[in-house]
Each structure stands twice: as C-alpha cells, then as structure tokens.
C-alpha cells in the first residue's frame, strides 16, 4: 500500500521480455505458448465482447435486438436511435453538468491534495501524525455511513439540486492527499533546502519546485479523480432532483429504468454516449491510470 513512485524513474509497467528458453524445452514451450495465447484471446473477447455488442446494438432496431436467435452485426444499420435519444433527452445539458462537476472535483483534489501532501511529506507542524493517521483511517469507512448526514447538510445549506451540492462533498479525498504525500516524499530534501537558503518561501517552493516535479503523480490523480466523478451515480441521483441538474449516468439510468425492456436499442445508444468519453480519456491516459492503480490501488 505504501509503494512509492520516484519522480526521476517512474516504475516500468512493462515487464521484461520472456527469459531465453533452454533448447530442450522449446517444443513444450511452444505448445504452452499457443494455449496461453488462445486463453488470452478468449479472455479478451469475454471482457470486450459486451462493449462491442453494445456499440453494434446501438445501430440496430429494437426489433432486431429482441430477435431470437440474436444477430451480431446489424442487418440494417441505423442512426435512428441516436437521433431519437438526442431528441428526447437534453444531452448537451447532462454532458455539461457531468463535465463541470468532474472538472471542479478534479481541480479541488489536485490543489488541496497536493498542498496537504506537501505539508505531510516535507513540513513539520504539530498534529501532523494524528492528521495522517485519521485521514488514512477514513478510507475504510463505507460511503453509506456519511450519505445521510451529507444529504442533510447539503439540503440545509440550500445546495440540494445545485452544482455546488454535487461538487463540494468530493472536493477533497484522503486518497489524493495520500498519493501526493507518497510522491512528494521522494523529492530530495536537499533540493528544497537549497531553495530555502536562497530565500524562497514555502509557497514559492511548493508552486515553483514541488508541483512541476509532480507531473506524473498529478496526471494519475487527475485522471482517476475525473473518472470517479464522471462515473459517480448514487450521490448525483439523490441530490439532482430536476432534469436540468442530471449528470449523464443519472439521466441514462432513470431513462433505462423507466423504459425497462421495451426500448432496448435506445438504452444501448445512451450507454455508448456515457461510455465513449471515458474510453477516449482512458485510452489517451492509459499509462497514468495503470501506474496510479498499481501504486496505490485506487480508482
């Protein structure tokens, strides 16, 4: 859990190539290798299959989707589902809500998380250890524990059904501070001491030296926080009570629950719209997601 990533040499996620095989075992190895690859490909099909089926299904008519035996490739591809979806639901609005909330939550976690991370890693102040332990302890607390008090708090502040109500409770997280603390600990003290001797204040050091060195950690934290917020479901479902405050997952979920099994093709198209931005972001920043998960185990 306390694996750290050094700024100078980020851990190589790529493993070393297979070691050379002793010649006597080549035949055995080859059969073994074939089995391995077949297994991997079957596994990949099972993992990605539902997504492919979803994308293909979004171009089918509901009639075709419900046919037995099922078709795989759309017989008569149509974009009608997407057009109907955008006609019936205010997608630009949901997209805007999801984006605003996710960006604000990400910005908060980056700034406040790295500030606390710096204080915990490099500064001495009373209460530091207690703070760190308390922060880590809250990571075991199930989300449902704070759900009710948070709802009452946000309602009493008059923030129910507002963007702020969706953002504020998630502006800081223990995981962000933890990740940043681990990373900043690996920055050599000498570097900071040298700047102090040159007369730099702690804020200058933080913004001009520490943060620029934290690129990989900040990228990891940013993408993970953004994904988490984009996919968040329960809190927005309860806090956003009118349609103009819905985030994408809430809108799709309520639409799907309302439709049940009647209009499955539309639901497929809706899911594609929710998933697509995440997939693009994830593919583009794959390296940082995987690094982050591997080093801290967070989503």
């Amino acid at each position: 859990m306390t694996t750290t990533t050094a700024p100078a040499t980020p851990p190589a996620v790529e493993p070393d190539p297979v070691p050379p095989v002793p010649s006597g075992q080549v035949g055995h190895r080859r059969r073994h290798g074939l089995l391995l690859h077949v297994g991997l490909i079957v596994g990949l099909l099972l993992m990605v299959g539902p997504f492919v089926w979803m994308i293909l299904g979004s171009f089918k008519t509901t009639g075709e989707l419900r046919r037995i035996p099922p078709t795989f490739i759309p017989e008569d591809p149509t974009t009608g589902n997407y057009r109907e979806l955008f006609d019936r639901l205010d997608f630009p609005r949901y997209f805007f809500n999801s984006t605003v909330v996710a960006l604000a939550v990400t910005a908060g976690n980056l700034l406040f998380g790295s500030m606390l991370g710096y204080a915990l890693a490099k500064l001495e102040f009373p209460g530091k250890r207690v703070l760190f332990v308390l922060m880590l302890a809250t990571m075991m607390v199930p989300a449902i524990v704070t759900f009710m008090p948070l709802f009452v708090l946000v309602s009493n502040l008059g923030l129910a059904n507002t963007h702020l109500g969706l953002i504020l409770p998630f502006l800081v997280g223990a995981l962000g501070a933890f990740l940043m603390r681990q990373f900043i600990s690996t920055i050599p003290d000498e570097l900071l001491d040298a700047a102090r001797i040159d007369g730099a204040g702690e804020y200058t050091i933080f913004f001009r030296i520490v943060l620029p060195l934290c690129g990989p950690a900040l990228a990891t934290l940013a993408i993970l926080t953004f994904l988490g917020s984009w996919n968040a479901f329960l809190w927005p479902l309860v806090v956003a009570s009118t349609e103009d405050m819905y985030t994408l997952p809430v809108a799709i979920a309520l639409f799907a629950i309302g439709q049940q099994e009647t209009n499955v093709a539309l639901q497929m198209a809706g899911s594609v719209v929710v998933v697509l931005p995440v997939v693009i972001l994830f593919v583009a920043m794959q390296k940082y997601v995987i690094q982050g998960v591997a080093s801290t185990g967070i989503k």
């Binding site: 990949l44 539902p50 979803m54 979920a253 899911s271 594609v272 995440v278």
Partner: peptide, 25 residues
C-alpha cells in the same frame, strides 16, 4: 498493451452503462 486495456476497460466504465448492457445480455 491491447490486452491490458481490454481487461481493464470494464473497471473504468460507468456502472450504469454496464448495467444496461448486462441486463440485456
């Protein structure tokens, strides 16, 4: 990398979209 991406994809996908697809599956 392709395999890693494929195996990891469901983990970063919205539960709502997954539920829609799996309910139909």
């Amino acid at each position: 990398k392709v395999f890693r991406l494929g195996f990891f994809l469901p983990y970063v996908t919205s539960i709502v979209a997954i539920a829609v697809v799996w309910r139909l599956l």
